[in-house]
Design a protein around this nucleic acid. Structure first.
Lengths: 200, 200
DNA sequence: TGCAAAGTTGCAGTGGGTGAAGATTCTCGA
DNA sequence: TCGAGAATCTTCACCCACTGCAACTTTGCA
């Protein structure tokens, strides 16, 4: 099924389109790249582009549709002895190690793009909303609460916010992402009532 | 300056466009309303529409550009004896009382719209990123930390996430927004380490 | 080999969004 | 009161994002 020539080509096309989009936008800027440019660079027609992506933005900073389920599984995989907050943190760190670290160059290019076009940063995180839904599920299951309860929703939202925060800081601070993410998520677990006075 | 006929008309035009956008989209659905429709309803040309709003979305769920500065002032206005986290919470509640409650009908119409088009909810919060910047500043000033430090950024991001969470729940749960917001923000202050077992 | 399914493409059309030139309306000082 | 000048609105022309449709090509499978 996933090994057929058809699926392989499909993956290649999608990858080529995404790579072309990131490369061109990184080089010229978002508005200076048309869909036709991207399609031409990838060697397909413009019409085909829309068979893979809903729009230009999605091709550049589109979310990984697998991220949500992966996160949910990671949270569920943590031992029950671990606090929920800790489990979420470990899951995020595992996600970083498994995804961000391997495709480093692509992530850095995307980072350059969203830094040059800050308005895209938000859109880049739009997809993370979908991932947060899975996170809510995992937390709800772990705590025995409903997905509509406050705690799972707030923890998922806050953890997502902290993670985005870490990614943003990663762009400027010269420190590894996993350290920054751990720091931000620890802050949530400790509670935000008492601000630490040490600059970091 | 702000009392001239010119400025008054400008305000009227902007208001008419926003109101027309919300009304029409609420009635027909987002994709069934064109910019020309909105402009016609407001009695101006389509081109003029773009002199006021960057796009259709912005006219419907556009952010209040004043919200950021207002929040910063509110945080700064809280007594120093209050914890930072508490000050942020109070500021948010004051913002709700001052803005959401007065223009109730407009907010409810917007709520109906984003409920019918969940994908717009995220975009509606795009503007809140700008407000978060001001929140970071207020927190940094209050704590004596730099705006680039982890604590202000994470607290602002987490508080914003908790608030968005409350707004989202407001759409479904039949409870007042200020109560939901207080509940979500309290959860941050208490720390997220120990999930409460009571369903709410 | 032959057929069905999936993927690709060109085409035509709608609508979002922008720049520019000219008409209209308001402001303000004389 | 009036006219210069500025702000705003309108019209027009244009580019590009995005979509539905009807071929056409490639792949999977019997």
């Amino acid at each position: 099924m996933t090994g057929g020539l058809r699926d392989r080509k499909k993956r290649q096309t999608r990858d080529a389109l995404a790579r072309a989009a990131v490369t061109l936008v990184d080089a010229r800027g978002f508005d200076q790249v048309t869909v036709d440019d991207i399609a031409a660079e990838a060697g397909v027609s413009a019409r085909t582009f829309f068979n893979y992506f809903a729009g230009k933005e999605e091709a550049v900073v589109g979310p990984d549709p697998e991220a949500g389920p992966r996160l949910r599984a990671l949270v569920a995989a943590q031992p029950a002895s671990m606090s929920t907050c800790e489990a979420v943190k470990v899951a995020f760190l595992a996600e970083i190690a498994g995804e961000v670290d391997v495709d480093r160059e692509l992530w850095l290019a995307r980072l350059r793009i969203v830094m040059a076009h800050p308005e895209m940063l938000v859109r880049a995180f739009v997809g993370s909303q979908a991932a947060e839904k899975f996170l809510v599920e995992a937390i709800a299951e772990r705590t025995g609460l409903a997905t509509t309860d406050t705690y799972p929703q707030v923890l998922a939202a806050a953890a997502g916010a902290a993670f985005r925060c870490a990614v943003t800081r990663w762009a400027t601070a010269n420190r590894p992402l996993d350290v920054l993410a751990a720091e931000a998520l620890d802050l949530l677990a400790v509670g935000l009532a008492d601000p630490p006075r040490t600059s970091t």
